[in-house]
Design a protein around this nucleic acid. Structure first.
Lengths: 241, 241
DNA sequence: CGCTCAGTTGAATTCAATCAAGCTCTGTGG
DNA sequence: CCACAGAGCTTGATTGAATTCAACTGAGCG
């Protein structure tokens, strides 16, 4: 799969770009590599020289805490640039790793900067992308601070399914989510046991079914209601529902 | 106080700009107004046409939840642009209000965009500013998800004091923080009672003293340790300590 | 077959929320 | 000047949600 095509597809979900802009994006040099599940793409403290584009699979950002625990911050699908956040930043304040096997393209910051200079609209589109990321962070603050365990779980599932669907990565009512219960807990600020009980809850109430790496939505309206999910913060141009 | 001078002072804390860049920034049209405590500058759902610059006092971002509760997301000091996050976004996914009385300057998006086109370095500086905001959001996710009540409080105090100090807004070991316990709870995902006990805890252990709108640091190293505070994520060029 | 790893479940514990009452300012009006 | 009201803070008792601890299950694999 062509990494730059994936990026362009993603940018089109929230921005409009001219034909010339797209051509220039296609000229970006980039190299693709495969990451194993759990493998780090970049670590806290590193000085990034390249940006990653998710080509296939899923990446995640996380903080490493002094006691060795992890806090997952966000999840990234095909077309996302999980460290666009670090374009203008010297030292990584978080790490990026693969959730399941993944293919990632690397683009040198230098080339991106040159492109932003010659094609301001492209810069604006990527900037917009970073702002949407920030909106997702804000939502995570609220989710992890103000909602009960099942509601948090429901909200995260809604977000992931909605974004997957917007990117055409769902089939019927299921999307791929190659993640363990432990990691779900590290994303939501919950213990493994609580994650399990929250999942059982969603399953029993027939809202959603998470099993062995795939998420199935049983009742979208109910799930969105349970998680107080309102997709406005994702700022997509076209709603996938 | 000149709003654009405040902005420039802030941008210099994390970016370096040429003399011409600074001159162009000074040319931006802007109008200042005073906000009462708790007054909204912009609401969830609004379509922003201008960006705010905090000239004096403090602003905050917050989410309004379906049940009417608030989740505060971040706090903003003089020089910050609390809705730079919304430059490329149609509809506000959060609101911005004053914490205590505040003076805010408004700059039309149109003029900012023109400036970004003519002076890409200025755009990069503001972009960088939005990325630092995002880093602060990430830290808030971790803080509210993975730490105990007193640790959360300690971390928030460290961040606010550190940023205040970097902007020259502290006197000795105290900074102004015109906020109520209730709002602290709404920022940290804690109830009023728990906030109070956490504060008592910090007071008893002689780490920090929060009282009637001002925060005094008694033991910086101890407080930073308690809150696992590492200022790296603020990405400032010079450390204020 | 037995090992490990991931998920499941129950019981005990802990932390924070909730509830309820009192306190302490501050500003206001008699 | 004092009485009073009200908001914001403090504190204790109770409840409840989530954590922790521990045992168990089941799938996958050498």
């Amino acid at each position: 799969m062509d990494p730059l095509a994936v990026l362009i597809k993603k940018l089109k979900e929230h921005s409009s770009l001219s034909q010339e802009d797209l051509l220039e994006i296609r000229r970006l040099p980039c190299s693709v590599r495969e990451l194993d599940s759990h493998e780090d793409f970049i670590r806290q403290g590193d000085r990034p020289k390249v940006s990653a584009i998710v080509v296939e699979g899923m990446l995640a950002r996380y903080h490493l805490l002094p006691n060795g625990a992890r806090q997952y911050l966000s999840f990234h699908l095909a077309g996302d640039m999980p460290d666009s956040q670090c374009l203008f930043i010297e030292v990584m304040d978080h790490a990026v790793c693969a959730i399941g096997k993944a293919f990632v393209a690397s683009v040198p910051h230098r080339d991106l900067m040159k492109l932003f200079d010659s094609r301001p609209k492209v810069g604006a589109a990527i900037w917009r992308e970073t702002l949407i990321d920030a909106a997702i962070f804000r939502e995570a603050i609220t989710n992890n601070s103000a909602r009960s365990a099942p509601a948090r779980m429901a909200h995260l599932f809604c977000e992931l399914f909605y974004r997957s669907r917007a990117s055409g990565l769902t089939r019927d009512d299921t999307c791929i989510l190659p993640i363990g219960l432990n990691q779900l807990g590290e994303a939501l600020g919950l213990s493994l046991a609580t994650v399990n009980r929250a999942l059982a809850n969603l399953r029993d109430t027939d809202l959603a079914d998470f099993k062995s790496g795939s998420l199935t939505i049983r009742n979208w309206a109910g799930l969105a209601d349970c998680g107080e999910f309102n997709p406005r913060y994702l700022h997509l141009r076209r709603e996938p529902f």
